[in-house]
Amino acid sequence: MSAMLLHKDKWSEFTGRLSGKNLWAPSLQGGIKKFAPVGEGDAVQLDAENTAVPPKALLFPQTETLFRFSEGQEDLEFPGLDEPVILLGVRPCDARAMAIVEKLFRWDYEDPYYLKRRELTTLIGLACNEPGLNCFCPSVGGGPASTEGLDILMVDLGESYLLEGLTGKGKALLEECKDLLEEAGADALQQKEQLVQEAASKIRRSVDPEGIPEALPGLWEDPLWQRVSAACLGCGICTYLCPTCYCFDIQDELEGAVGRRCRMWDSCMFEEYTKHTSGHNPRPTRRERTRNRINHKYSYFVDKFGVIACVGCGRCSNLCPVNIDLIDILRQVKAAP
């Protein structure tokens, strides 16, 4: 089974069936769009705009308990990660980000938490017909219908969705819902191609990353970093909401005789991120921190894993309260001598 059609009449039946399997989908939660569990009978509406909080929060929770401990007990208690999750309506950029972040969590140490969650998660992607204002995924190797990291790709054809099973997990899920689907004809596939091309042509912003990873080390002391970071507030918006940012801190929390060790998102834009106990800070100002953010994504990660750790989702540019615009920074990097 490769490409199937799901008529929109059957959409609620489809999501209803998945909702019994720990289904999560984009939802507006008091004004912020993020992935939330879909209960039985809940309507799932996929619209053009991507979630503000990327679905990375499901594989790499903002606060994750690694284990619990209690006084007088030698054994640690570990979380039972065994419940499969289905994420519906993941954007191709965010799925690509998961594939990229996985490289890190599979690197010299295999992180059991992330990898287990990744294994338990089925990603049903939704191709973007209407790219957002700051989307630039094609510039960094993605695209509005990129399949990397996804198990199923869904394309909105208007009357129906085209569903393509991409992995074993994805195909098995489609097989289960076979009675709701029909085989897609050549015309549907053609329509998909056309929509994807149209979407790509609607992407308004772009930057050619060619040469950036090579140029960055030479720009270490360039005045551009002072220029682009002067307005930075040093908050965590760009990193917390970046689908490829994965930095974390580990802390113990105690309550009386019991406690837990947990890891939580951390941000290289925070002052205390690199602050030593002695008080010395190797990245003492926002200039070094901004430089690190760009270098990490466009140079260090490329050196290590051969891919740019940015998927062009545009969140950092969209959400920065002081208009620090990644695309603008990259253009300045390219223009620097």
Binding site: G30, Q62, L233, C235, G236, I237, Y240, Q251, F270
Partner: peptide
């Protein structure tokens, strides 16, 4: 509902002209 949405990016603290403690209690361990 409102506080549950917070992602603790601390942009509210940092953008505030009057939140400028060098050693903020939120960063204290």
């Amino acid at each position: 509902e409102q506080f549950s949405k917070c992602i603790r990016c601390y942009s509210c603290r940092n953008a505030c002209p009057l939140c400028y403690c060098e050693d903020c209690i939120l960063d204290r361990l």
